[in-house]
Design a protein around this nucleic acid. Structure first.
Length: 854
RNA sequence: GGGCGCAUAGCUCAGUUGGUCAGAGCGCUUCCCUUACAAGGAAGAUGCCGGGGGUUCGAGUCCCUCUGCGCCCACCA
């Protein structure tokens, strides 16, 4: 018998077990396993842009319980971990943390030191640094964050294989990401296009549809008169963006609108700027909205883009990458008045320009009435602070079905290949794929990311020839086109006429994180046979909020590259809500940090709380659940010690007594139930069933048999039966709780078993019962009688140890049968001297307490 | 406008194919220093299962409808 502590405690058990697991390689993946022996998990790499919060603890625990279950089922679990440390989120974190901003025109400064380290004063103006300096800073800061992440995840007891750690800015991820892109390019799935693009003027980058969100913002309808060239009554339009009048290219009404039908094809001229524009018809124009006729500008919103494209209208874009109106009067504004008006807004940001234009319109009499204040939804970059503008730029795209019906249908069908947990989450996927309105824009005009791995030829004048894309060989990946040269060309040809230039952009972080199965699985990496052993993976766990981004993007890449779905299951976690049922987020200031909870309640207790949140369901943060988890862990400690204290049963001893066999049969049902729940990713159900049995086991069964297990006055074989059953149940329960409470279960397992419980086999129902079925339905009536005796003692305000002179049991046959099966144990636990039985329809117990001893 | 989810004791939630399904824990009340556990244990009270219809011998459980809350999506002048 190993050493069982005199007073078992949960305090401090985490640290030594974490070390032991690492030392023993308890969670190490065996790369020689074949695919059918592997359970592969496409772990989400958390974004390195600050600190982990309680929501991470929640969802990562869910996955970990499943990983541990599968490992105990005998699977070789491929459970990698990565950090998503490239991308805009990281750049912003670094900017805010160190007080710098990247200016790619600056030269590298080898002696540069960040002005601040997390203590940037509010009034600090960001210090410009070169791109290489900025990237160095990003690597430095992310490394610090990643150490903190690792510490938390280890403390949380995640059974990931830390030797599989990757980062999305690391060499392998950059290589895989560029390789996948180049193959997309070669097959025509990646392409570049010069087109109107939603653009964040603060971050100075294009953004993808999946990263946008609508926000309700205040605005106003301005009713503005456009005069007709033929002198008829002016046309009145309503617009929320009067500052875009200089970009107006037409007015548009619905083709069936009788009010405007006579005017189609006629011309008006724009107020203030005096530009002639036609009145055109398009079915997207809503007769109900505003005055039924709208101004088309290049570009005020995405509808403008549709009109512009479908009606072949000219482009008169004025807002540049800096978000300001062009400084020069554009060629299409020709009148003196127009030029004068334009100079009033040249160089202004949209908001100021609007104010100025409205003043001018009011003065000229073209503004009818007062602007009518409204609130309306406007597109924002999800991390942005000003509305997106639409700017025509050259960008890289990957086809995702947004512009092709067949691909869209194929990707929808891929969604059907997955088993979704819970199943209704598939609607979100279908909804998103069905509603795509363009291909996936992957290029970003940023710095800390995986470079777009291409160069362009320069013509005789030194201008890029975008059709002449130069690509690297796969063997040379990863490349940085700003420093590396295309095959066959030399550094001195960079930037000179007839030479080449590197693409300055990086890929969006989703373009790399969409390849997590390929990165973790070492797809197409030299000398690695891993990929075929883990792909397609068994499960993608993730939050339901990123179905449209991460899940869908991963599906797109896998569809293009492998012609199949990257996983078999998608397991969606809900969010953590604060007690007021608001989503926790940094901006709301209601984020709960996890480390102190792990310290206060112990990891197992926090995991217990997390695991009781059902798959996909948003769950309130609830510390009281952690207290219950701690109670459960403490109870396991104590009951383990107690059961083991009876001494080992004789060799070959088995449960022969009715009560012991029934308990094991009941446990077998729980094992079966928990097993099927886990197979369906319903860890919460598995926990609930196990826990329910566990408390019954402690409260009733152990109490019933402890006298017999002590061996005091019992027949030897009855004592052996109790001890054998207790140990069998204890072993089973320790293993069933191991996925949820990995620390306390391994602690108590170590008291009497060799090896880690996390490498033990998951219990099988047929280990517990013999070949023939055992009835356990009579346990309930038995426990009802026990409860009645306890109730009588409680009501009499005496100790539970008090003697019962005589117990009268009135009840149906089932009750008397139950008592008959376990009379000795019942008598012992209740200190009952005599039991009288009488038939009755309903159970009624009359408890005659013995007079208190002198 | 389309889609999805939720609505069960004061709180957080279980109730899998309709038949002990009116439950658990927390909180609250009472009792017990009991030799595994007093950071315990034993027990108790609490509910028109959101409203209204319907199917059925029988409905938190299935169908319809209404109401409220939340989320996703949408071409939002």
């Amino acid at each position: 018998m190993a050493n069982i502590p005199e007073r078992p405690s949960l305090d401090g058990i985490e640290a030594s077990l974490i070390d032991r697991w690492e030392h023993d390689g308890t969670y190490r993946f065996d790369p020689t396993a074949t695919r059918d022996q592997v359970f592969a998990i496409d772990t989400p790499p958390p974004t390195v842009s600050g600190s982990l919060h309680i929501g991470h603890v929640f969802s990562y625990t869910h996955t970990d319980t499943v990983a541990r279950y599968q490992r105990m089922r005998g699977k070789d679990v491929f459970y990698p971990i990565g950090w998503d440390d490239n991308g805009l989120a990281t750049e912003r974190r670094v900017q805010n943390f160190t007080g710098v901003r990247c200016d790619p025109s600056l030269p590298y400064d080898p002696d540069f030191r960040a002005p601040f380290h997390g203590d940037v004063p509010k009034d600090h103006r960001a210090v410009p640094v070169s791109r290489p300096n900025f990237v160095e800073l990003c690597r430095e800061i992310t490394h610090l964050d990643e150490q903190a992440f690792e510490e938390l995840f280890r403390r949380l007891g995640l059974s990931v294989d830390w030797s599989l750690l990757y980062t999305t800015i690391g060499d392998r991820a950059r290589r895989v990401s560029q390789r996948a892109f180049l193959r997309n390019l070669a097959r025509g799935e990646a392409y570049q296009q010069d087109a109107p693009t939603l653009y964040d003027i603060d971050e100075r980058t294009a953004v993808a549809q999946a990263e946008m969100e609508d926000r309700e913002v205040p605005g106003a309808y301005h009713r503005i008169a456009f005069r007709r060239l033929d002198g008829g009554d002016p046309i009145v339009i309503a617009t929320t963006r009067p500052e875009l009048i200089p970009s107006c290219v037409a007015l548009v009404a619905h083709p069936d609108d009788p009010r405007y039908q006579p005017l189609f094809g006629t011309m008006v001229f724009t107020p203030l700027f005096g530009v002639d524009v036609p009145i055109v018809a398009h079915p997207l124009a809503d007769p109900e909205k505003g005055t039924g006729i709208a101004m088309i500008c290049t570009f005020g919103d995405v509808t403008d883009v549709v009109w512009w494209r479908e009606l072949n209208l000219p482009s008169r874009a004025l807002i540049g990458f800096d978000g300001r109106f062009a400084g020069e009067v554009p060629e299409w504004i020709a009148t003196d008045m127009g030029c004068e008006s334009y100079m009033q807004i040249a160089g202004l940001a949209p908001k100021q320009a609007q104010k100025r234009v409205v003043e001018m319109l009011a003065a000229s009499g073209d503004l009818l009435g007062e602007p009518e204040p409204i609130t309306h939804p406007v597109k924002f970059y999800e991390r942005g602070s000003r509305p997106l503008e639409i700017v025509a730029t050259r960008q890289w795209y990957i086809r995702n079905g947004g512009r092709g019906q067949q691909l869209r249908a194929d990707l929808l069908a891929r969604g059907d290949e997955l088993t979704w947990h819970p199943s209704y989450m598939q609607h979100r996927y279908d909804n998103w794929v069905g509603g795509l309105n363009g291909d996936w824009l992957i290029s970003r005009q940023r710095y800390f990311g995986v470079p777009v791995p291409v160069w362009y030829r320069l013509d005789a004048d030194g201008n890029p020839i975008y059709d002449e894309v130069l690509v690297p060989g796969e063997a040379s990946l990863p490349v940085d086109p700003s420093t590396d040269c295309p095959p066959g060309l030399t550094p001195d040809q960079r930037g000179v006429p007839g030479g080449f230039i590197g693409d300055p952009d990086v890929m969006d972080t989703w373009a790399t994180s969409s390849l997590t199965p390929q990165i973790a699985g070492q797809w197409a990496e030299d000398g690695s046979a891993l990929f075929d052993r883990v792909f397609p993976m068994d499960v993608r766990p993730q939050g339901h909020d990123i179905i449209r981004t991460w899940l869908f993007a991963t599906m797109v890449r896998s569809h293009h590259e492998h012609g199949g779905s990257p996983w078999r299951n998608a397991a969606l976690s809900g969010w953590i809500l604060d007690p007021d049922r608001k989503k926790m987020s940094k901006s709301k200031g209601n984020v709960v940090t996890p480390m102190h909870l792990l310290e206060q309640y112990g990891t197992d207790a926090v995991r217990y709380w997390a695991a009781s949140g059902r798959p996909g369901v948003d769950t309130a943060f609830d510390e009281s659940q952690m207290k219950i988890g701690r109670k459960l862990a403490t109870k396991l400690l104590n009951v383990s010690k107690f059961v083991l204290s009876f001494g080992e049963p004789a060799a070959g001893a088995t449960a022969t007594v009715d009560l012991d066999q029934a308990m094991l049969a009941r446990l077998a049902d729980v094992v079966a139930d928990a097993t099927s729940a886990f197979d369906g990713y319903d860890y919460a159900r598995a926990l609930e069933r196990t826990e329910q049995f566990f408390w019954w086991f402690c409260d009733d069964y152990v109490e019933l048999v402890k006298t017999r297990a002590y061996g005091e006055g019992s027949a030897e074989d009855a004592t052996q039966s109790a001890r054998a059953a207790l140990r069998t149940a204890l072993s089973t329960l320790q293993r069933m709780l191991a996925p949820f409470l990995p620390f306390v279960t391994d602690e108590v397992w170590g008291w009497w078993q060799s090896g880690s419980v996390h490498r033990a086999s998951w219990p099988a129902a047929d280990e517990l019962t013999g070949s023939s079925p055992v009835d356990h339905g009579w346990l309930d009536p038995l426990c009802d009688v026990l409860a009645a005796v306890r109730r009588a003692k409680t009501e009499a305000k005496v100790s539970q140890r008090a003697e019962v002179e005589r117990l009268e049991v009135h009840g149906p046959a089932a009750v008397h049968d139950a008592i008959g099966r376990a009379r000795t144990d019942l008598v012992a636990v209740g200190s009952i001297r005599a039991i009288d039985a009488a038939p009755a329809d309903d159970l009624q117990c009359v408890v005659h307490l013995a007079p208190p001893a002198e």
